[in-house]
Design a protein around this nucleic acid. Structure first.
Lengths: 240, 240
DNA sequence: AACACAGTTGCGGGAACCCGCAACTGTGTT
DNA sequence: AACACAGTTGCGGGTTCCCGCAACTGTGTT
């Protein structure tokens, strides 16, 4: 059984490798890729079935890599292993995980035992396992300030620089509906509050919404870059 | 001689500690802080004179920490040690480094020798040392798409959600000048090009400028968060 | 002194945005 | 069947943004 590690940080890769050797004696060979693109290639060449994947990498990021890998072999088991528990990552993953595959999400700050456990549970036992910490974030964003899926979609489009009209077209809504979404976004992201705002001087809600969303970890640079690529595809498709 | 390490990643901290012990036999004691706030406190308590500082940390980030430390003791020597060579970080550092202090910038991907060298050069010899790789980024942004300082300031304000009028007020320019800055920003950031853009459907330049700037590493989430704090201060000041 | 050139400012108008008001769905409750 | 409630859409207007046009600085060149 071959295991693929996708991780661009050398130290983390070393640690991970050792942990995997301990936790998974069944593994006969460990491959290592230093970014998403390389990971995809190795997974393809070696018909890899189990992977540990970093999310934030310099080249192609982990979510994009996972998507193409899952597109080719939906049953691949992937354990995501990341520094952060941003809502943006959660959504990114939730969006692409096939229903008959198993995956997991562990933070790099997790103890060695927890990592061991996650490795075995996800990669061998095909469980779904999400780190306590991460799950909390997931819930709390679901409780208090839930962004609807459609709100999230509008947020992304808006952040990419689409006009209301264009968003409407892409999302298949009317213009006014898009604006309603934006209203509720402004509300949920807390866009109004420029604390000591001089009364007559207004703010630009759109741009403020973006930085608020970045602050709240609802979006991040990587999710925007992926979304940008999707957008380009869509543009070309809908052009013809 | 006491050395302070500010680094929230456990593995990196270990590595750094070992490297420092090897490279700096003069050091008698190594203190360790896991985020910026803690680092500031330790530096203050122990009258620290040499520091290795990570930039991206979960709590308070490295640049903010460095600023307060330098504000208290401008001669502190700080070696920044980071994963990335974003323009945003460069600007952040350039903005706060006192003229009579020495600092350095090394990437985490640097070889051990290079790290050794940087440690000695900056912390002992009080040199200014910037990693080759980083310096390249610095130059290339200075060559092709230089953002003027004032352009950068406007970009930040705009990203924080200020209206043209407010930016004008904060920057002490006329409204039209702000808009001129924005024009050149749109140009330099490449905001026009929605490749297959349907002709009649325009884009929102402001928001697109933000994501372009994020893509190009001209700004990043941390720099925006610091800027937000500055903005709040300014708002309160200018209110009275 | 004459010139080029880059940066600053005012004016004005077309387009996009923000949003209150109001009507019209659909889904689920009692 | 009656009702509540959340989501969708159109309309209209006040505001902000985007930017061409044009005048007016200042700095440096020839």
């Amino acid at each position: 059984m071959k295991l693929l590690l996708v991780e661009d940080d050398k130290f983390h890769a070393d640690y991970l490798k050792k942990a995997a050797l301990e936790a998974l004696p069944e593994v006969t060979e460990i491959l290592h890729a230093a970014d998403g693109r390389e990971g995809e290639a190795l997974a393809r060449q070696h018909s890899i079935e189990i992977i540990v994947m970093d999310l934030q990498m310099n080249g192609r990021n982990g979510i994009d890599a996972a998507r193409t890998i899952w597109a080719e072999r939906p049953k691949t088991r992937i354990l995501f292993w990341s520094n952060y528990s941003d809502e943006a990552y959660m959504r990114g993953i939730a969006r692409i995980v096939p229903q008959d595959s198993s995956y997991g999400y562990v933070l790099k700050t997790a103890t060695r035992e927890r990592l061991h456990l996650a490795l075995r549970a996800v990669l061998l036992e095909a469980q779904i396992l999400v780190d306590q910490q991460v799950h909390k974030v997931q819930r709390q964003t679901q409780a208090h300030d839930t962004l609807t899926d459609s709100e999230y979609a509008v947020l992304i489009d808006m952040s990419l620089g689409l006009s209301d009209k264009l968003i409407a077209k892409r999302q298949g809504m009317s213009l006014r509906t898009v604006q309603n979404r934006l209203l509720s976004l402004y509300d949920k992201l807390g866009v109004d509050s420029l604390d000591a705002a001089p009364d007559d001087l207004a703010i630009n809600k759109r741009t403020r919404a973006i930085t608020r969303a970045l602050n709240l970890r609802a979006i991040n640079a990587e999710s925007l870059e992926s979304a940008e690529r999707e957008l380009q595809k869509w543009l070309h498709r809908s052009q013809s």
